[in-house]
Design a protein around this nucleic acid. Structure first.
Lengths: 202, 202
DNA sequence: CCTTGAGTGGACTGATGAGTCCACTTTAGT
DNA sequence: ACTAAAGTGGACTCATCAGTCCACTCAAGG
């Protein structure tokens, strides 16, 4: 990605990425052309290739990174401070709300499929997102343990991985079926497991 | 889908669907052309359109249905008789094995994204698959309850939904990162929850 | 003011790939 | 055997779209 060196250039580059993200959410990757993006971003063909010399793939990757950054940001401040039952509850609601609002768009999943598993860049973005996400869940579980709210024997690694998997699956089922039942079940089930461990502690 | 009326015709039609499924798994939907499919299936362009007058979309949908049928079939006979701890364990291993072997191909997910959320057919296939899958998990959980192995208070609906979500998410994380940790965590966590409920019963 | 390079517009090209068409062959029923 | 319908081959068309190219404008530093 060719970085812009003037304010005007940076603005154009940002307009392209954000415009592209919009169009991609609306139409899906496979139905979006560079010309759609160009139109939405009020840019010209040459600007696209000026800032993303690698062409469509490079632009798509930039959009994927941009979307990935939003995923965690949208869960804050809740995700960052999961140290009480109330904060877990607020986080749960924030996740449900975010994905129900997003509806049947899965920018990241779609982008990933298009750019292809082969490209190392795409895989790195997703891997890093998952790593950070799970770490924050695990930190939250350990915070409950530290506060004496959850048994010290609670398997944080396994449960945080399972919870993350449940969220991903819940979201992808919702994409396909339009129904958020599974997402809610995964979240509630994860939290219920924590509470169960608290009850056994008492 | 125009159904064939002779044995030869049926053979050709089957060759097309299965050949298409193969190529799609290998190359991914967005990099597969009708010509790739035609070549693999030893068919000609006119045959493709003879049996799938709706063109590529219709063919893709037929492949999606074919893949969906395999998903549950591949988990049998285990999935159909989850009435003991041993059968749950065998099923768990079968799922992990199947998806690890499949690697980073997600025929169904990719197909769905390509055909598009808008088409009612695609959505129906996924919805029905999820419904059946969850039902079999729930049946298994109730079988354990009936056998006195799991507490009657165990929330079968929520847990089967969460387990299904965990599997889906585990698989999709594995697609993106190449790592099956999350899938295993989701499965083991679900089964562990059942066992926990058994311990409380004792 | 002039120069330099970043930034911009949009016409053009070339490849690709979905879908059409028609001539030909095979199959099955009478 | 005859014939009608089913099945088959593959050349051809036509639209689309990523990517190129070049002429132009603008802003900043000297």
């Amino acid at each position: 990605m060719q970085n812009a060196s003037t304010a005007k250039g940076r603005a154009t580059q940002a307009r392209i990425v954000e415009g592209a993200a919009e169009v991609l959410r609306e139409q899906g990757v496979s139905f979006t052309t560079l010309d759609d993006i160009r139109a939405r971003a009020n840019a010209s063909k040459s600007q696209l290739f000026h800032y993303f010399p690698g062409g469509k793939d490079e632009l798509l990757l930039a959009v994927a990174q941009w979307e990935a950054d939003r995923v965690l940001a949208d869960q804050q401040p809740h995700l960052g401070s999961l140290d009480s039952w109330e904060s877990w509850g607020r986080w749960r609601d924030a996740v449900v709300e975010r994905y129900e609002r997003q509806g049947d768009q899965c920018p990241l999943g779609a982008l990933f499929l298009q750019v292809g598993r082969s490209t190392p860049g795409a895989r790195a973005i997703v891997t890093e997102l998952m790593r950070q996400w799970q770490k924050q869940l695990a930190d939250g579980m350990r915070a409950l343990q530290a506060g004496g709210l959850v048994s010290p024997g609670f398997d944080v690694e396994r449960c945080s991985a399972a919870l993350l998997a449940g969220i991903q699956g819940g979201v992808s089922i919702m994409m396909s079926t339009g129904d958020s039942t599974h997402l809610k079940a995964a979240l509630d089930n994860g939290i219920e497991q924590l509470r169960e461990s608290a009850r056994r502690l008492a």
